[in-house]
């Protein structure tokens, strides 16, 4: 009895939550419901429909404010019976539609980040193009939950759709999608030939004016999937150095970065928040005024645990200095 009290504090209803997410991804193409306007509302009408690099958002930035809301809702629902009912309901109707919606400003903030990243690659001279019909969620939750049979089917669908449109090079904008395309899909799929690059690898440093006017002190937080997953950690620093933005390195940085807690947010919002508080504490203790992230999940998790600390995306900062 004592042992059982010691455990099961965080993981409740894991089967049911995973089943809801699995069903949503496989049937509906996303882990949680997001209105089309939030997914694709950032697109300007004159986006090129043809080019060398496909601009693959992977929908993660668009999803982040919705994830924040749904995780807050999950934190309140702990009853197993309720989850069973929700799970049955979810077979017919997407239950994630019923969580509270993020504000218009939050959705717009994410759209602005995506447009900023698009400007950064476009101004770097790359021939980038976009088509919303083949820009899909990359299935990272299937991967993390170990649902490999489902992931294989899902990944094939993504890869086939891209190939049918003649895509062989993509630019990704978040670490999760980047990791899936660079590391997971090549080992999972036969005849996979898509070359994926994080936008951070492709930015031309000469597009910036090299004179930062920032008064605030910044601290940099590396996302696990960039730093350890695909080895992208010197690129963002080079860009900040080029612009002349001073930043502080926290305890646990670069390839030895410390997870924000985001990956367990769906199974245990409480545990995820504890880790978020711990990491944000390390970042703030450096004396910085603002935290630079490069991942929408890190941003959402930090924002969930503190509304006082200013969390920004790297692209918001550097795009101010495009010539």
């Amino acid at each position: 009895m004592e042992v059982m009290e010691l455990v099961n504090r965080y993981i409740n209803n894991s089967n049911l939550i995973i089943e809801i997410i699995r069903r949503n991804i496989m049937k509906r193409g996303y882990p949680i419901y997001i209105p089309n306007k939030a997914l694709y509302g950032w697109i300007d009408e004159d986006f090129p429909r043809d080019g060398e690099y496909f601009f693959y958002t992977g929908l993660m930035y668009q999803m982040a404010p919705y994830i924040e809301r749904i995780v807050n809702m999950l934190q309140k629902l702990r009853s197993g019976v309720l989850f069973k009912v929700i799970n049955i309901l979810n077979r017919v109707v997407d239950v994630s539609r019923f969580s509270s919606k993020p504000s218009h400003e939050e959705v717009m903030k994410m759209h602005k980040i995506i447009r900023n990243i698009y400007s950064l690659v476009y101004r770097s001279g790359l021939s980038v193009w976009y088509d919303p019909s083949i820009d899909k969620y990359a299935g990272v939750l299937l991967y993390e939950f170990g649902l490999m049979d489902d992931l294989k089917i899902y990944a094939e669908r993504i890869s086939d759709a891209l190939s049918s449109m003649g895509v062989n090079k993509i630019v990704t904008i978040d670490p999760h999608t980047t990791y899936m395309f660079k590391k997971v899909f090549p080992s999972l799929l036969e005849n996979y030939s898509i070359e994926a690059y994080s936008y951070l690898e492709l930015i031309d440093e000469d597009i910036f004016v090299g004179s930062s006017a920032e008064q605030n002190k910044f601290v940099i937080h590396d996302p696990c999937y960039y730093a350890r997953g695909v080895g992208v950690f010197s690129e963002p620093r080079k860009l900040l150095d080029r612009i002349g933005v001073e930043y502080i390195e926290p305890k646990f940085n670069r390839v030895d970065t410390y997870c924000c807690g985001g990956p367990v947010e769906s199974l245990s919002p409480l545990f995820s928040a504890k880790i978020g508080v711990k990491r944000l504490g390390m970042l703030v203790d450096t004396g910085a005024d603002e935290v630079i992230t490069m991942c929408p999940i890190c941003m959402a998790n930090f924002r969930r645990v503190s509304k006082e600390v200013n969390i920004i995306d790297l692209s918001e900062l550097i795009s101010k200095y495009i010539k």
Binding site: I11, C224, C259, G262, V264, F271
Partner: peptide, 8 residues
């Protein structure tokens, strides 16, 4: 299921 799979 509390593991973050963060690879640290």
């Amino acid at each position: 299921y509390t593991c973050l799979v963060c690879m640290a």
